[in-house]
Amino acid sequence: MKILCFAHLSEQLGASSMELELGPISVADFMAELKNRYPALLLDHVMIAVNEQFVEQTHVIEPNDTVALLPPVSGG
C-alpha cells in the first residue's frame, strides 16, 4: 500500500511517501494502525483519499491502493 503524506505530515514522518505491507483493512483500522506505528503523526481532522476518491471510515483499503493523507489547510 502506498501512503502519500501531505503538508506537515511529511515533516512529522520524515518522508513524503512510504510503502506499507497492509490490507485489506478498513479506513478506521488503518488510521489506528498508523497512529500506533508513527505516534508523531497528528492525524486529527486529516482527510483520507483512496485512489483519488474520498472514502468513509468503513471503506476497505486493498494492498495495492494509494492512500493520500490530507490535513485541512486554512492559509491564504
Binding site: L4, F6, A7, S10, S16, S17, A49, E52, Q53, F54, A68, L70
Partner: peptide, 11 residues
C-alpha cells in the same frame, strides 16, 4: 505539494 512533487485530484 510543490516541494515533494505530489499531486492528487480527488473525486
Amino acid at each position: 505539494d510543490l516541494w515533494s512533487n505530489m499531486h492528487q485530484s480527488i473525486r
